[in-house]
Simulated assay, not measured.
Amino acid sequence: MSFPVLSVALSNAVVFGSYSNALDYLDPSHRSSSDRSERSPLTAVFTAGCFSAPIDLVKVRLQSQTTGNKYRGPTHCVAVILREDGVKGLFRGMGALALRDVPCYGLYFLPYEFTCRMLTEKGKRPGNDAVLVAGGVAGVVTWACATPMDVVKARLQMSGGGGRVYSGLLHCITVSVREEGVRVFFKGLLLNSVRAFPVNAVTFLSFEMLMRAMTDSSQD
Rank of each mutant, 00 (worst) to 15 (best):
M1A: 09
S2C: 10
V5I: 14
L10R: 11
F16C: 01
A22N: 11
A22P: 10
R31W: 00
S32C: 06
S32K: 10
S32M: 06
R36T: 11
S37G: 02
T43F: 00
F46V: 11
L57K: 05
V58M: 10
T66H: 13
G68R: 11
Y71T: 15
E84T: 14
E84Y: 02
D85P: 05
G86L: 01
V87C: 01
L90P: 06
G93W: 06
R100G: 07
D101M: 06
V102T: 14
C104S: 13
Y108T: 02
Y108W: 11
F109W: 09
F114W: 15
C116L: 09
R117T: 12
L119F: 01
L119I: 02
L119N: 11
L119C: 06
R125Q: 14
L132V: 09
G135H: 09
V140E: 01
P148K: 15
D150T: 13
K153E: 15
M158Y: 11
S159F: 08
G160I: 08
G163L: 05
G163Q: 05
R164S: 14
H171P: 09
H171Q: 08
E180H: 15
F185L: 01
K187C: 02
G188S: 05
L190Q: 08
N192P: 00
R195E: 10
V199A: 13
V199P: 00
N200F: 04
A201M: 07
V202Q: 05
T203P: 01
F204R: 10
S206I: 00
M214S: 15
S217R: 15
